[in-house]
Computed example of a mutant assay.
Amino acid sequence: MDRLIYTSMTGANHTLNQQATVAHNLANASTTGYRSETNAFRAVPLYGDGLPTRAFVVDSTTGSDFTTGPIETTGRDLDVAVRGPGWITVQLDNGEEAYTRNGSLQVSPNGLLLTQNGLKVKGDAGVISVPPDTRVTIGVDGTVSTVPLNALPNTVAIVGRIKLVNPSEENLVKGADGLFRQKDGKEALADARVRLIDGALEGSNVNVVHEMVSMIALARQFDMQMKMLENADRNAQQASQIMVVRA
């Protein structure tokens, strides 16, 4: 009886957690460069006095889905999408670096190359600065070039190169801010094989139909676990009545 109660109770609790993950994925179905999160159940025995007859159900986050999202052409000079595996490096306010697939960039009033969320885009030699009154273009290898607005078109100046990396997916962990970092805390090395697509953005890799089906399945699973609790309670009451009658 205890095993049934503990299993259904913890299963219902973690089913709610999985529903929250699915809801989070659906909310980011249109977020540029978003990587959907995945979950899985696993059973953990409860050890204590007596035999380990009780078991908990634990929601084990298996990580993120690294499948490439759809590429959407925008024609904007500061929009870039990573072609295949790879990441764009950004620098956080504390100096640490993180990785994103969101290549919608902008130039701040101070001339810094930023993401749309205000994060500094990191280059091979540090933060990338852009001179004023220039047109910015980004090459497939991440090279950032500028052309003065009032100069000849062939007056091109290279101001930096975006740090493109391709660390092992097994060593990446997603933070609460949606950015990825290496589990060991080290900075990834630049990878010259990573290529960009200029004038394009990568969409979210969330499969809306799959997530909706998962939401329905989780709701049914929650109902089943609640019925198991009701059955366990009913069986306990009937067992108590039998013991009272025999006494």
Score class of each variant (00 low, 15 high):
residue 1 M to C: 09
residue 1 M to L: 10
residue 2 D to I: 11
residue 2 D to W: 11
residue 3 R to I: 12
residue 3 R to N: 12
residue 6 Y to L: 08
residue 7 T to R: 05
residue 7 T to C: 03
residue 7 T to V: 09
residue 15 T to S: 02
residue 17 N to R: 08
residue 17 N to F: 00
residue 20 A to F: 05
residue 21 T to F: 03
residue 22 V to P: 03
residue 23 A to C: 06
residue 23 A to I: 06
residue 26 L to P: 01
residue 27 A to W: 14
residue 28 N to M: 05
residue 31 T to A: 01
residue 31 T to F: 01
residue 33 G to D: 06
residue 34 Y to A: 01
residue 34 Y to S: 00
residue 35 R to F: 02
residue 37 E to A: 10
residue 38 T to W: 00
residue 39 N to C: 03
residue 41 F to I: 01
residue 42 R to Q: 12
residue 45 P to S: 10
residue 46 L to Q: 08
residue 51 L to F: 13
residue 57 V to S: 00
residue 58 V to T: 11
residue 60 S to L: 11
residue 62 T to V: 13
residue 64 S to A: 08
residue 65 D to V: 02
residue 66 F to H: 10
residue 67 T to G: 15
residue 70 P to F: 15
residue 71 I to P: 02
residue 75 G to D: 12
residue 80 V to Y: 13
residue 80 V to H: 14
residue 82 V to D: 14
residue 84 G to E: 12
residue 84 G to K: 01
residue 85 P to I: 01
residue 89 T to A: 07
residue 91 Q to E: 14
residue 92 L to T: 01
residue 93 D to G: 11
residue 94 N to K: 14
residue 94 N to Q: 11
residue 97 E to L: 04
residue 99 Y to H: 02
residue 106 Q to R: 15
residue 111 G to H: 13
residue 112 L to A: 15
residue 112 L to S: 13
residue 114 L to K: 02
residue 115 T to C: 08
residue 116 Q to N: 14
residue 118 G to S: 07
residue 119 L to N: 10
residue 120 K to R: 09
residue 123 G to Q: 05
residue 126 G to S: 08
residue 127 V to F: 07
residue 132 P to I: 09
residue 133 D to K: 13
residue 133 D to R: 13
residue 136 V to M: 14
residue 136 V to C: 10
residue 137 T to K: 08
residue 137 T to Q: 07
residue 141 D to L: 03
residue 144 V to N: 04
residue 147 V to W: 02
residue 148 P to R: 14
residue 151 A to Q: 12
residue 152 L to S: 15
residue 154 N to I: 08
residue 156 V to A: 08
residue 162 I to G: 05
residue 162 I to Y: 04
residue 162 I to E: 06
residue 162 I to C: 06
residue 163 K to D: 10
residue 166 N to V: 02
residue 168 S to E: 13
residue 169 E to M: 06
residue 170 E to I: 06
residue 170 E to Y: 08
residue 171 N to D: 15
residue 172 L to H: 08
residue 172 L to D: 05
residue 176 A to N: 13
residue 176 A to M: 12
residue 179 L to M: 08
residue 181 R to M: 10
residue 185 G to H: 07
residue 188 A to H: 10
residue 190 A to K: 00
residue 192 A to Y: 14
residue 195 R to Y: 12
residue 201 L to G: 04
residue 201 L to P: 00
residue 202 E to C: 06
residue 204 S to D: 07
residue 206 V to Q: 14
residue 211 E to N: 05
residue 213 V to S: 11
residue 216 I to Q: 10
residue 217 A to T: 07
residue 221 Q to F: 00
residue 221 Q to E: 09
residue 231 N to A: 10
residue 234 R to C: 00
residue 236 A to Q: 10
residue 237 Q to F: 00
residue 240 S to W: 00
residue 241 Q to A: 00
residue 244 V to P: 00
residue 245 V to N: 02
residue 246 R to T: 01
